[in-house]
Design a binder for these strands. Structure first.
Length: 431
RNA sequence: UCCUCAGUAGCUCAGCGGUAGAGCAUCCGGCUGUUAACCGGAGGGUCGUAGGUUCGAAUCCUACCUGAGGAGCCA
């Protein structure tokens, strides 16, 4: 008999099928067993009637504890009483591996315990839904950028020095070359790739050794970074806007069930449409100060500030032209007033904070060299980067989008760590 | 690095100076439509660690360890 995945039940109503999976939960009476079975594609209820199966099948159901692996045969039926709308009327049931004492019971658990058992927690309905949404986000991101004519050119994970010379990096011994560092951004290499391919993106893991201990930070996270040649700040941010709208639309279309499992208010996501509002840094400062923030002009926003700004809108907001002094050395100054840089962040609604950061890159070799000296960076390490301005320099811009932050926002959950199968945080590297 | 809170059964917690408790999980029994099923019974403990106060400490004090939340930091 052919194995049918639970997600495909709709096309097999009335047929006898084989299901291979695990026992998620069980309820039973003297003559009936209700097995909630999951097979990776979904969850379904299997009903075993003592009178309707061979005795060994009934005993198998009786003996199985939570998360036992099993194979069953039965007829697919539509039934409103069953979770998911379909159930299987079991004709045969066999345990592959009987297990008891699965640590994660259907009752409440604390985060520490769940994180300690992350390898098992992944099987729960909620975690399953979140990671399925993450997959949709990644797929939609790639599809959108590919359709816009960008070429995927991945950048290295081992790097010789700080990309921006500011944040803390993880160092690893690298043969006789001394210390290599895990990348914190593919951007500088992206600029080289953009000069070769015109429009590129990289998509991979990035690493930050900051001792951040908040619900918005991981030490290892995934970031997609598009970079466009012959482009200005507005061009890059328009691409980001299209990307975000496209990703949200895709999740709404293809992950309805998962959003329902997470009890996500989809009305909030349906509002995500172009155009996004643009807010100048100066106006953003005025806005948060009027709401009682102590943040002064010339500083970056705190977590609370971002929430206050985002709450003023029902869709993501673009905050642009941060002072050059608080941005990375390679940001192009605004020609109208060089105190400001051609940079922008996109803040997600509902207090989820920054999901995109980007800007226009400095295109003059002389200005860039001056900046490198101002920031006290080793000129030799950036020789290749300056070369990009010596051989056919063009205006170019790009941005980075943090995948986990986007997934957290779309799922409407309160902590970044659930969006990664095995999140790396300040005090946890097991499992 | 700083601030706050918490460590008691496998899990979630109550107990806050005088016999170690509950719900869930596990095991046994009952129930033909359950929805975190329900009902009855059983087993399960170095009260985070070390010291101190006391006739007596899970409970009060000190230090340390571990974790959570937040701040700082952070495309």
């Amino acid at each position: 008999m052919k194995t049918v995945r639970i997600a495909d039940f709709k096309a097999h109503v009335g047929e006898e099928v084989l299901v291979q999976g695990w026992l998620h939960n069980k309820r039973s009476s003297g003559k009936l067993q209700f097995l909630i079975v999951r097979d990776g594609s979904g969850f379904a209820q299997a009903v075993v009637a003592k009178a309707g199966v061979p005795p060994e099948a009934w005993e198998a159901g009786d003996a199985m504890g939570q998360e036992s692996s099993l194979e069953l045969t039965g007829k697919v039926k539509e039934d409103k009483r069953a979770p998911g709308g379909f159930e299987v009327e079991v004709t045969g049931l066999k345990a592959i591996h009987v297990t008891h004492d699965f640590p994660i019971t259907p009752k409440e658990h604390g985060t520490a315990f769940l994180m300690e058992n992350r390898h098992l927690w992944l099987r729960s309905q909620r975690q399953h839904a979140i990671l399925r949404i993450r997959h949709a986000v990644v797929k939609a991101t790639r599809d959108f950028l590919d359709d816009q004519g960008l070429t995927l050119v991945d950048t290295p994970i081992f790097t010789p020095a700080a990309c921006e010379g500011t944040t803390t990096l993880f160092g690893v011994p690298y043969f006789d070359e001394g210390t290599a560092y895990l990348t914190q951004s593919g951007q500088l290499y992206n600029e080289a790739n953009a000069a070769a391919h015109g429009k590129v993106y990289c998509f991979g893991p990035t690493f930050r050794a900051e001792k951040s201990k908040t619900r918005r930070h991981l030490t290892e996270f995934w970031m997609v970074e598009p970079e466009l040649a012959f482009a200005h700040l507005e061009d890059a941010l328009k691409l980001a806007e299209g990307l975000i709208c496209s990703v949200v639309r895709r999740v709404l279309e293809t992950r309805k069930e998962e959003l329902k499992t997470l009890e996500r208010d989809v009305a909030q996501l349906e509002k995500i449409q172009s155009p996004f509002p643009w807010l100048h840094y100066d106006d953003a400062i005025k806005l948060i100060q009027s709401k009682g923030s102590q943040t002064q002009w010339g500083s970056d926003f705190g977590g609370t500030d971002e929430t206050v700004i985002a709450q003023a809108y029902d869709r993501p907001v673009v905050v642009h032209r941060f002072p050059s002094a608080i941005k990375a050395f390679y940001m192009e100054p605004d020609p109208d007033n060089p105190v400001y840089s051609l940079s922008a962040d996109i803040l997600a609604p509902e207090g989820y904070g920054e999901i995109v950061g980007g800007g226009e890159r400095m295109s003059s070799a002389e200005s860039l060299l001056a900046r490198i000296h101002e920031h006290d960076l080793p000129e030799e390490a950036f020789r290749w980067y300056i070369d990009l301005r010596r051989f056919g320099s063009v205006p170019h811009a790009g941005f980075g989008m943090g995948i986990e932050r986007v997934v957290t926002w779309i799922c409407g959950i309160d902590h970044l760590r659930e969006t990664s199968a095995f999140p790396r945080t300040l005090y946890r590297i097991y499992p």
